[in-house]
């Protein structure tokens, strides 16, 4: 009983960590621009796909992973510069629709270049499961959870302890005031795209040895990351983390104890409940003050 529970819990936390990274990506861009970037899932997919490609091209794993994070962040910056920046003054809703368009383009290009097949990335440190309390845990799970935790700590440090991080936060609190103290707010905008793409791609790289990847794997990962961000309260970093873990664990428990056919439905049931009863999410601190 306990072993089974632990098994589900661990797999939930593992996938939840990926959702949390995706949710952090949504959060960073939302904070910088109030835009919900629906191409976030594609950054995750790009991370996984590119890691596979670079590894198959003969790069050593660490380098392949690094490149699989850098390239998507460049794509993120490019997307901000070419797609979002030119329509900066448009309605938020329009920009959100444009991000959906950008996600279709990214997905299409990947499908054309790499095909529709599923790809596998080898685990970082073998495939011998570790037993904890009767549950068998894949070593890759520890990579996912450990690196995600490091990223969360790193982001926390960046946004609470460095002037650059605080300048990005300040821009999200009050754009005009940020410009008046000399913060280049368009730099903040593309920086937030680069960072959220990098964080998303990292999540994609980490989880690919467990889940495999294909050109369309970003859709579900992105949507669940979005659910996680909303559940946690859009704009809250802690909320994204908790939301991601909650969605992941709920999904794993649902798949284990109910039926795996409900696996994908549960996060969306959760978002409905949250929107009914806690419209600002669990940690939703930001009041809507825009007119």
């Amino acid at each position: 009983m306990l072993a089974q529970f632990l098994q589900y819990l661990f797999s939930g936390i593992t996938i939840g960590a990926t959702y949390a990274l995706a949710a952090l990506g949504f959060t960073m861009i939302y904070n910088a621009s109030t835009v919900i970037n629906f191409a976030q899932g594609e950054f995750i997919m790009l991370g996984g796909m590119l890691a596979v490609m670079f590894q198959q091209a003969g790069f050593p794993l660490p380098l392949a992973v690094l490149l699989a994070i850098i390239v998507p962040s460049l794509v993120g910056v490019l997307m901000e510069k070419m797609v979002v920046e030119p329509v900066r003054s448009a309605d938020t809703v329009n920009i959100i629709i444009i991000t959906i368009g950008a996600s279709l383009v990214i997905r299409g290009v990947v499908q054309v270049v790499f095909g529709k097949g599923a790809f596998m990335l080898s685990s970082f440190s073998g495939d011998t499961p570790v037993e904890i309390g009767g549950a068998m845990i894949m070593p890759q799970s520890f990579w996912v959870i450990g690196v995600s935790a490091l990223v969360v700590v790193g982001l926390w440090y960046f946004f609470t302890r460095t002037l650059t991080g605080k300048a990005m936060l300040a821009t999200s609190f009050n754009r005009t005031a940020a410009e008046l103290v000399g913060i280049n707010t368009s730099w903040v905008l593309w920086m937030s795209f680069a960072m959220s793409a990098a964080v998303g791609a990292l999540g994609g790289v980490l989880v690919t040895p467990l889940t495999m990847t294909s050109y369309d794997s970003g859709i579900m990962l992105g949507l669940k990351g979005f659910v996680a961000a909303v559940v946690g309260g859009l704009g809250s970093g802690a909320g994204a983390l908790v939301g991601g873990l909650l969605v992941g664990v709920l999904e794993a428990m649902g798949a284990g104890y109910l039926s795996s056919s409900y696996k994908d439905a549960l996060p969306f049931v959760l978002i409905l409940l949250i929107l009914f009863f806690l419209p600002r999410g669990l940690f939703g601190s930001r009041q809507t003050e825009r007119v």
Binding site: A170, A177, G182
Partner: peptide, 29 residues
């Protein structure tokens, strides 16, 4: 701002959730 035009805006517009010291430090961004 870098050339020396600094403004205290109407309605104060402080960065509410940030500490006073952070607000001031950002003024010296």
């Amino acid at each position: 701002v870098r050339r020396g035009i600094c403004q205290s805006p109407e309605g104060r517009q402080v960065f509410g959730p940030l500490s006073i010291e952070d607000n001031l430090r950002l003024g010296g961004y």
